[in-house]
Every structure is written in structure tokens, then in C-alpha cells.
């Protein structure tokens, strides 16, 4: 269900916690599974639950509680823009407008070619660098302007 590399990564996470608390690794395990599969299908959640010896519903609780898990397929690149107060004061709205126009999609949508998904996010703890978005759950792209947005998107496959 998951590749040996993913399982190895999960095992690394499991090792951080006392052996009787494998469940502690579920957040990381779901993240690793999502990285591999692109999103968390029910089977994937069930697999992770089984791998960690927990009930599937307990893993589903986790997968649906935290915002960064994708429970539906998303585009190749997920762009999550923070629109919280600090970011809004500092120009998040125009960044969003520009992104939406450029990609032709709204929040929660994916471009028809499947390359981009746009999401609205909550505070990323980086407000000093606003406006900003998070790319694929991994990278914060800060101080956005039409130019920087163009450059970032152009650099993506």
C-alpha cells in the first residue's frame, strides 16, 4: 500500500515515541502517506491505522481534524494562502485576487489540467513576511507580489 521508503520514514517517526505509543506517529504517518499518494483516500487512512495498530476511525478522526490533510484529490501543487488578519492588512487580498485570476480558479478548486489547487489557510505563524502562501504543505513563499508569484509559478513543473 505504501512504498518501502515511506514505511521507513514512518518507522523513523514511530521510533520517537515510547514503543507502547505507536499511535503518536499517526500524524507523521498520514503526512508521509499523503506525500506519497497525493491525498488521503479511506484505504490509505485504514492502512496507516492498521500499520500503527489503531482503529481506522481513530485515524480518520486525526485526518479530518488537522487542516493540512487532503481528504480529496488535489492538484499537483497545492497553494494555501493565509488570509488571516495580519496577512489581509498586508495585502493578502490582492495576492489572492492575482492568483485566482492567473489560475482561473477560486478557493477549494483545482485547475482543469490538474496542476494547481488553491486553498484558503489560517495563520501560518509567519505574518511578518506577508502576504504569503504555503506550497505543497512544505514551503512558505513570502512577500508576494505579482512578480514573485509569476516567478514561483514559472519555476514549478
Amino acid at each position: 500500500m505504501l512504498t518501502p521508503e515511506s514505511l521507513k520514514k514512518i518507522d523513523r517517526e514511530v521510533a520517537k515515541y515510547p514503543p507502547e505509543h505507536k499511535q503518536s506517529a499517526v500524524m507523521s504517518a498520514l503526512r508521509i502517506a499523503q506525500d506519497e499518494k497525493g491525498w488521503l483516500a479511506p484505504e490509505t487512512i485504514a492502512f496507516v491505522a492498521h500499520y500503527l495498530g489503531m482503529q481506522p476511525i481513530a485515524a480518520q478522526e486525526v485526518a479530518t481534524f488537522y487542516n493540512m490533510y487532503d481528504l480529496k484529490p488535489v492538484g499537483k501543487h497545492k497553494i494555501t494562502v493565509c488570509t488571516n488578519l495580519s496577512c489581509t492588512l498586508m495585502g493578502a487580498e490582492s495576492a489572492v485576487e492575482y492568483l485566482q485570476r492567473k489560475l482561473g480558479i477560486g478557493f477549494g478548486e483545482t485547475t482543469p489540467d490538474g496542476r494547481f489547487t488553491l486553498k484558503e489557510g489560517e495563520c501560518m505563524g509567519a505574518c511578518g513576511d506577508a502576504p504569503l502562501f504555503q506550497l505543497n504543505n512544505k514551503k512558505i513563499c513570502a512577500n508576494l507580489s505579482p512578480e514573485t508569484i509569476d516567478a514561483i509559478l514559472a519555476g514549478l513543473d
Binding site: P42, Q55, P56, I57, Q60, E61, T64, F65
Partner: peptide, 20 residues
């Protein structure tokens, strides 16, 4: 002795359900 029901989602969107 077995967790079959859970509360998924969060906040007002929370729902009580079984796995899928």
C-alpha cells in the same frame, strides 16, 4: 472495548460517525 464510533472533523463541522 472497541472504538467504532468517532468524532470526525472539528468545530461546528464535527460529526459522529463510524469509519466511512
Amino acid at each position: 472495548g472497541i472504538m467504532e464510533m468517532g468524532q470526525i472533523g472539528r468545530g461546528e463541522h464535527s460529526e459522529i460517525t463510524t469509519f466511512i
